[in-house]
Nucleic acid binder design. Structure first.
Length: 585
RNA sequence: CGGGGAUUAGCGCAGUUGGUAGCGCGCUUGUUUCGGGAGCAAGAGGUCACGCGUUCGAGUCGCGUAUCCCCGACCA
């Protein structure tokens, strides 16, 4: 490819809207352009790079016996009604009427369409296990798209679905895909990534893993152990927390004028935040108050809370708080009207003694509150149904690990893939069965496996860049080699470069040739922005000595001068070595 | 959905007390340059986001709307 003809120009100035490094470089390097919030077009550089990611992905999916299919992006409402997700999903799903005003959706994931396939095609145990995958556009009306290609409303995803006769088979296969994912990410050059336990969210099923590229700009917070292999998304990360217990003192109500927050309360009472019990308030759509009781120094993880409650929650409105007997700034468990609220008690509150908490009376708090003695013991059977206990706290850096008690650490990550145990969540609701050996209809046991193809490119750039631009691994770079010609009009410089270009192309190497009559500085700056890993520079100065310059984009070693007669074989060899770096046995 | 910011040439920006719009980059042509975003000269390029209002006159003042970005909420 001649650079002079490549669509997509570089720009010197950082576009105003770009915050993330990957976003800046993708715009500056002429990889992508924005059409609207969360909607981008891929110019040739990005398209080529993404195509390589897709190719590697297909190879790895085929190795775990995946069969590529293509399902429609458009779907009828009826299909999604079968699983119940048409109403369960909410505004994230694009919905549109067709010409006859029939409700349609743009698929944000394809469990429903794949079950449609499975229930007509996978009807015998003899066909199982089976895995179908596709690489295809997904639509999600994200509340807040951001970060260039990181969070989009229209993006490409590899999604795979496996069908099994039985739980054991699914679990075996689940881990096989886990392995395939490890191989895939290594081959794309992603270095610093981990798989973590994660929340199942709207998928249903029993457990799941997220693959996270560990970069400081990541949206997700991960909790990892400094000693053992514990790794989890903060949404589900657990910790026993450090707790202290002392002899129970008697409950008192004290005046706390103008004290609203935990930090004001602990300061006023001259105690630590962890000697308090705060009431974090949410509500259900049915206007019932949800009071989450948690130790004052900890934060509530709403996913955990939703899981315990089995209901969707919103921030509580004042009227709902008051109706249940809560007093903003002084809400506590004692005295709330349980017919109008749910109480969720975090295990840290159960394990702590003599806490300070709200008294449900303006400007008053209770001290020496012990949840078992002062609250739980006084409930009747009906009231007990309105109270749930469990883990709703966010583990933090420094808290003990749930497996080995060492200190936990916090890291940031971008989710680049995930695998889900789905079980029979969809096969049951959508009546998808096969006949087992005894001729009895059974629901397929399912797993699903996603890779954010579009998102992997920015994740890789977040990981691999310098202050001049991206440094792409050769396996996903838009071209293998970038050739610059300095002073193309002088002598046979251009001729020599073209010969090399043709010879490398003939050898199956992808080359981008800067054939423009640009100053060296401009050529180098643009080459840096293209991120191509290997560079060859032809100049009259070096050709006079019979030499051609070769260098790596990542500057791992000083530029080398290669005899011009050897440059073709030298580059072929360097390309082969570079690819070998990313090979997985 | 809450909070903050923005919208003037392809990109980045300036535009004073209200008087009909400018700079840099990029683009076109010529010329001199040529190893880390060159110099000179000549050009092309604008519905100042949109609507309504105030005014003799609005990029500028008022009201409304839209779009984009950031933080939070949310996120198969």
């Amino acid at each position: 490819m001649f650079l002079s003809k490549l669509v997509g120009r570089t720009v010197k100035e950082t576009p105003r809207d770009a915050e993330l490094i990957s976003h800046k470089y993708l715009l500056r390097g002429g990889f992508i352009r924005q059409y609207a919030a969360g909607i981008y077009g891929l110019l040739p550089l990005a398209q080529r790079s993404i195509a390589k990611i897709e190719k590697i992905c297909r190879e790895e999916m085929n190795l775990v016996d995946g069969q590529e299919v293509k399902m429609p992006c458009l779907s009828t409402k009826e299909l999604w009604d079968e699983s119940g997700r048409y109403s369960a999903i909410g505004k994230d799903m694009f919905r549109l009427p067709d010409r006859n005003d029939k409700p349609m959706v743009l698929c944000m994931t394809h469990e429903e369409p794949v079950v449609f396939f499975a229930r007509s095609e996978l009807t015998s145990y003899r066909q199982l296990p089976a895995m179908m995958y596709q690489i295809q556009t997904k639509f999600r009306d994200e509340p807040r798209p951001r970060g260039g290609l990181v969070r989009l409303r229209e993006f490409t995803m590899k999604d795979a679905y496996s069908f099994h006769a039985g739980e054991d088979d699914l679990q075996k296969y689940y881990w096989r895909v886990h392995e395939a994912y490890m191989r895939f990410f290594k081959r794309t050059g992603c270095k610093n990534f981990v798989s973590v336990l994660s929340d199942n969210g709207m998928f249903g099923g029993k457990f799941s893993h997220e693959f996270m590229a560990l970069v400081p700009s990541g949206e997700d917070t991960l909790i990892t152990c400094s000693r053992c292999d514990y790794k989890a998304n903060q949404e589900i990360a657990a910790s026993p927390f450090k707790t202290s217990q002392e002899a129970l003192k008697s409950l008192e109500t004290v005046s706390t004028p103008n004290i609203k927050t935990i930090s004001e309360l602990s300061k006023f009472l001259n105690i630590e935040d962890q000697q308090t019990c705060k009431a974090v308030m949410y509500q259900t759509k049915e206007q019932e108050l949800v009071v989450a009781l948690i130790r004052g120094d900890l934060d509530v993880v709403e996913q955990k809370l939703k899981g315990l409650l089995q209901k969707d929650i919103l921030p509580a409105k004042d009227a709902v708080i008051e109706a249940a007997g809560g007093v903003a700034g002084s809400t506590g468990p004692v005295g709330l009207n349980l017919s109008k609220c749910w109480i969720i008690i975090d295990k840290t509150v159960l394990k702590s003694t003599n806490l300070a908490t709200g008294a449900n009376k303006a400007d008053h708090h209770m001290i020496n509150f012990n949840v078992e003695r002062d609250f739980l013991a006084n409930l009747n059977d009906w009231q007990k149904q309105r109270v749930k206990t469990g883990d709703i706290a966010a583990a933090r850096a420094g808290d003990p690990c749930p497996q080995c008690s060492s200190e936990l650490q916090e890291t940031r990550g971008i989710e680049i893939g995930n695998i889900f145990h789905l079980g029979t969540r969809y096969s049951q609701s959508m009546n998808c069965t096969y006949l087992d050996q005894s001729g009895i209809a059974q629901n397929h046991v399912m797993g699903c496996y996603g890779i954010g193809i579009t998102r992997l490119l920015p994740a890789l750039i977040e990981e691999h860049h310098d202050d001049r631009g991206p440094i792409l691994p050769i396996t996903v770079a838009p071209f293998d080699v970038h050739i610059c010609i300095l002073n193309k009009k002088e002598g046979d410089t251009e001729q020599k470069a073209l010969e090399t270009y043709e010879a490398l192309k003939k050898a199956g190497i992808e080359v981008l040739l800067d054939d423009r009559d640009e100053k060296p500085g401009s050529q180098f700056a643009d080459a840096d922005l293209a991120g191509i890993p290997l560079r060859v520079i032809f100049s009259p100065r070096n050709l006079k000595e019979g030499k051609v310059e070769f260098k790596y984009r990542d500057n791992r070693s000083p530029a080398q001068l290669i005899p011009s007669a050897e440059i073709i074989s030298f580059v072929k060899n360097a390309v082969a070595q570079e690819y070998a770096k990313y090979a997985v046995d």
